Computed example of a mutant assay.
Amino acid sequence: MSKIVIFGNSGSGKSTLAKELALKHNLAHLDLDTVAWKPISPPERLPISESGKSINDFLSTRSHWVVEGCYADLLSLVIEQAAEVIFLNLPVNACIENAKNRPWEPHKYESKEAQDANLEMLIDWITKYTARQDTFSKVAHEKLFADFQGKKTMHVSNNQFR
């Protein structure tokens, strides 16, 4: 277990699982949220080429890693180098509950209050996972999972890996 990609809906437990695996197996951890966005408000995606450069810099300097996110376009830049993929394919209601109980993510928000102020938008976003057809959608994640030829696991509950 040295090169792992984790993906799924927002609130599915990607960051939590990635942190657990990184700690347990001494893996470097890349949260794609940190390379996907311009540091402006309102948020705007970086060009894929810029995100790709950051991803390549991360991968080229580490031999053991876990990369996680919901961006199928960015995950496709990483997945060919992965030894294993994990698809957190939880029901939408479980993702919403996880989002409501999420601890403060200081690498994304300046405070817990700022994070909580974004919760209503996040829940709306999570709810649309199965209806979207974009890079963040269930259909995009299902394709990544189906096309991957290595070791792959799908979890439909957080209890499966805790």
Rank of each mutant, 00 (worst) to 15 (best):
T130W: 00
A82E: 03
L90T: 05
Q149E: 13
V67R: 05
V85S: 04
V139E: 11
R102I: 13
I48P: 01
S54Q: 13
K143T: 11
D134W: 05
S51T: 05
W125K: 05
V66W: 07
A99H: 04
E113W: 06
T130K: 12
S54F: 12
L46W: 00
I96Q: 13
S76W: 02
T135Q: 10
G150W: 10
A140V: 04
C95D: 04
T127I: 02
K138F: 09
Y71E: 02
P103T: 05
T130A: 03
H155L: 13
T135W: 00
M154W: 00
A99R: 05
L119K: 11
L75F: 02
L59N: 03
T130P: 04
E97A: 15
L119S: 08
F161H: 12
P103C: 04
Y71Q: 03
C95N: 10
E110A: 09
I86W: 02
F87S: 04
E44G: 01
P42W: 02
S111F: 02
L119F: 07
R162W: 08
D124A: 12
I55Q: 06
V66Y: 08
K112D: 12
K143Y: 02
I48G: 01
A72I: 03
L144N: 11
N101G: 13
A114H: 04
R102T: 10
H64E: 14
K108Y: 00
L88I: 06
E113Y: 04
S41N: 04
L144F: 04
E80G: 15
L144M: 08
L88V: 11
T130F: 01
N158D: 11
C70V: 12
G69F: 01
A117P: 03
C70Y: 00
I126G: 06
V66Q: 09
Q133C: 10
R162T: 11
R132M: 13
K152E: 09
K138N: 09
E120T: 09
N158M: 13
F58G: 04
P91R: 04
F145K: 12
A94N: 07
N158R: 14
M121I: 00
Y129W: 10
V78H: 06
L90M: 13
H141I: 02
E84R: 13
V67Y: 05
A114D: 11
